[in-house]
Design a protein around this nucleic acid. Sequence first.
DNA 1: TTTTTTTGTTACAAAACTGTTACTGTTAGG
DNA 2: CCTAACAGTAACAGTTTTGTAACAAAAAAA
Lengths: 240, 240
Amino acid sequence: MTLLFLRCNPLQKLILIVEDDVAIREMVVDALVKAGFDTREADDAESALTLVGEKLPDLMLLDWMLPGHSGVEFARRLKHKEDTSEIPIIMLTAKGEEHDRLAGFDAGIDDYVTKPFSPRELIARIRAVLRRTSMYGGPSAIQSGKLSLDPASHRVLSNNQPVKLGPKEFKLLHFLMTHPERVFNRVQLLDRVWGRNVYVEDRTVDVHIRRLRKALFPFGADNYIQTVHGTGYRFSSENQ
Amino acid sequence: MTLLFLRCNPLQKLILIVEDDVAIREMVVDALVKAGFDTREADDAESALTLVGEKLPDLMLLDWMLPGHSGVEFARRLKHKEDTSEIPIIMLTAKGEEHDRLAGFDAGIDDYVTKPFSPRELIARIRAVLRRTSMYGGPSAIQSGKLSLDPASHRVLSNNQPVKLGPKEFKLLHFLMTHPERVFNRVQLLDRVWGRNVYVEDRTVDVHIRRLRKALFPFGADNYIQTVHGTGYRFSSENQ
DNA sequence: TTTTTTTGTTACAAAACTGTTACTGTTAGG
DNA sequence: CCTAACAGTAACAGTTTTGTAACAAAAAAA
């Protein structure tokens, strides 16, 4: 297998369009490229997943009707996977699918555009969604004080020194770092890090927090994770 | 002038609807109330501003065409003011205003709904926007003099220095700060902070007030909490 | 397979928090 | 000025919450 390292402009947002109608796809890609976006194309959920695996896009355009799975179901799956849950999704729907739109919103879809749409409107909506979501939690590395965490390479650095973390610890730190200055109780953390419908003891969180702190301690970075007595834990770049 | 103290559920999101068509307004309010939202109504920009000044809404529904100013212009003004710039806005537009929608997105409007719309779609969109925006910077911090209390991060800052408080102290201060300039007797405080059907001695309140003051003392912020002899306690941003 | 790593649970220790009390200082009114 | 009700304060003991280490099961790697 060959790995392709594509050099891409980091300032250029990557849009993944999943749509089986070639005509629409080309029209959209054309508009996106002209608007200065980088694009990837897929015509079904399968190949879309492959592309997502290669490089997390900054936004996805998802056709409502896809061969195999429906678009919403695919969106729901993405939203449930930790590493892809933050990718904003815009749905492309045909007229008269009004009722189902509601299901889409519930699935965590950020916006939708009704076919036929004007390229200008599409671009405007993409920009609007990106503006909203890129405020926090882009797919690029998260920096916080001397800590930096890169979801893509699955690495944590403290003062450019690699920190060794287990998968759960990484996920936990990742979640906390993407939601700094906010307290989460144990159940919330279990929900967001371990996943819904997973039953584990509350106190398991404490143990993992402890392990995280232990791993960060040699770098003097353990105090980023703070205990809020009676409530839960908080990540804060401001010590104390 | 009469001041009405409305008891409102802090978990209930406050939606401000600005719309001059009474029929639409009532329909929307009806739907919102049924969906569990708290609402305020205004029929022009003027009165909308007054209401915003009284209490910052969690979201605004803005009619495209308003008497006096246009809706977008009003939105732009809100987005430029520091304290209101974070309020998400959903525009209500009539059919055939396609072109202008783009201007709306540029003005920082979060979404728009085309009239006529179904209540269900409206609610779904409101929920979607709230979900997106409340992820970060949810119910913003309460500021009072040099003190600020942020429920999301569960933090109290005095001159940007963190104040260490226990859970009960935090809750007590939180309650007092959300009801400033108002005296509460010990039973009322026990009810609202400790919870109904909890029996503890009245004097316990005194002790916690004492602990709060002690924690605030190093910052010279202890005199925000004032004793009203024979009655109870009051939080006041004006010292003395 | 064996070995290593990761994970969840538990038990106990340590720390933090809470409510009560007893005592002291204050206030308001006679 | 005196007094009775009221509020401030510190100390204490009991409770709850969190930290920590050790262990065994599960998963991953070799």
